[in-house]
Amino acid sequence: MKREFCLWVFVAMIGIFLSPTRSFGMQEEHKKSAGFEHVHALSMDAAGQTLFLGAHTGLFRSEDGGRFWKKVALPAKRSHLDVMAVTPHPREPKTIYVGTHEAGLLKSTDGGTTWREINNGLGGLDVHGLAIDPNDGKLHVAVREKGEGIYRSANEGGKWTRVDDGPGGEVKVLSSVNISTGMGGIFLYAGTAEGLQRNPDCF
């Protein structure tokens, strides 16, 4: 954790602390209210209407505050995808980004009806966190294992560039927080196996 420009700073007690290819049709299947098997992510769309839940068994959506869930079909050659991150766009309610354990990043611009892969430039496909800058829409993702590190996209996922080694410890969640660093940027927070960490968004 020593990349060129910025230094990851531990919070917790010790410190402080995402080639478009194909489109796919959505098939939703009803899901019982529980039994997701290892939940990884929970988020609500910009309209404040739909909850999305990412789990080992895939992506789910709820329109009633989490009482009833439907499974959202995602494009994959595999039978299922382990959904590690779900990040709705902060201002565009129909735009949703999903990070997966096996297939990298997926993006929907129609509220989850169709999806496309946005992995151009990523060094690996095990995505553990996805953050959107609320000011300019810039994206950051945390990739694990092959090609591990933090990647950035300034064109809504069209192209990714590795910008940092990332925080220590397995990343569980990544979030851009609209608090000024005093250096012209904001903070990028990471929930990790080693606690909460943050870094100025100045890669």
Binding site: V11, M13, V173, G191
Partner: peptide, 25 residues
């Protein structure tokens, strides 16, 4: 910056978009 259990895994993190000083872990 105190108050979080040390060296414990943070699984989830959310910030109030209207007041980013408010955070949940």
């Amino acid at each position: 910056m105190g108050g979080l259990p040390a060296n414990r895994t943070v699984n989830g993190f959310a910030v109030d978009p209207q007041n980013p000083r408010v955070m949940y872990v």
